[in-house]
Amino acid sequence: MTPTYRERLAVPLRWWVQGTMLVASLWLAVVVAVPGVVAWVVAGLSVALMAALLLAYGNAVISVAGGELRAGR
C-alpha cells in the first residue's frame, strides 16, 4: 500500500543549540577540575550521547495510507 502522506519529524534546531551549550558548560565545569585531555574526552562522549538521543527522538515518521494513520513505530 502506497502512503498518500508521509512525513519524518525532527527535533527543532533550538534543541541542538541548547544541547551544544549544555555540553560546553559541562566541559567548562570539568576542565577546571581535571586535566584538559579528560575534559575533552568527557565533552566528546557528551556530544556523541546528545547527538544519539536527539537523532533517536527525532526519528518519528507519520504516514497516512489506505485511510489509516500511523505515528511512530
Rank of each mutant, 00 (worst) to 15 (best):
M1N: 01
T2W: 06
P3I: 11
T4R: 07
T4V: 13
T4Q: 15
Y5R: 14
Y5Q: 14
Y5W: 02
R6K: 15
E7P: 00
R8N: 08
L9Y: 11
L9G: 12
V11Q: 10
P12K: 11
P12S: 12
L13W: 10
L13D: 08
R14I: 12
R14W: 13
W15P: 00
W16G: 02
W16K: 09
V17F: 10
V17A: 14
Q18C: 15
G19V: 08
T20E: 12
T20R: 05
T20P: 04
T20N: 07
M21K: 09
L22T: 11
L22M: 13
L22G: 10
L22H: 03
V23D: 03
V23M: 02
A24L: 14
A24F: 01
A24P: 01
S25N: 09
L26W: 00
L26E: 06
L26R: 01
L26P: 00
W27R: 05
W27P: 01
W27V: 02
A29L: 06
A29V: 03
V30K: 03
V30M: 11
V31N: 02
V31T: 05
V32N: 13
V32F: 13
V32L: 12
V32T: 15
A33Y: 10
V34L: 10
P35N: 13
V37Q: 09
V37Y: 02
V37P: 00
V37F: 04
V37A: 12
V38F: 08
V38N: 04
V38I: 09
A39H: 01
A39P: 00
W40T: 00
V41I: 15
V41W: 05
V42G: 03
A43Y: 01
A43G: 11
A43K: 01
L45D: 05
L45A: 08
L45C: 11
L45V: 15
S46Y: 04
V47Y: 14
A48S: 08
A48W: 15
A48I: 14
L49E: 06
L49W: 12
M50T: 12
M50W: 09
M50R: 09
A51G: 03
A52P: 00
A52N: 08
L53M: 12
L54V: 05
L54C: 04
L55H: 07
L55A: 03
L55P: 00
A56P: 01
A56G: 05
A56F: 03
A56W: 04
G58V: 09
G58D: 07
G58R: 07
N59S: 13
A60H: 06
V61I: 15
V61W: 02
S63F: 00
S63A: 14
S63Y: 08
S63M: 13
V64T: 09
A65I: 02
A65M: 12
A65P: 02
A65L: 02
A65D: 15
G66M: 11
G66L: 07
G67C: 11
E68S: 15
E68I: 13
R70C: 15
R70Y: 00
A71Y: 13
G72M: 08
G72V: 11
R73I: 05
R73F: 01
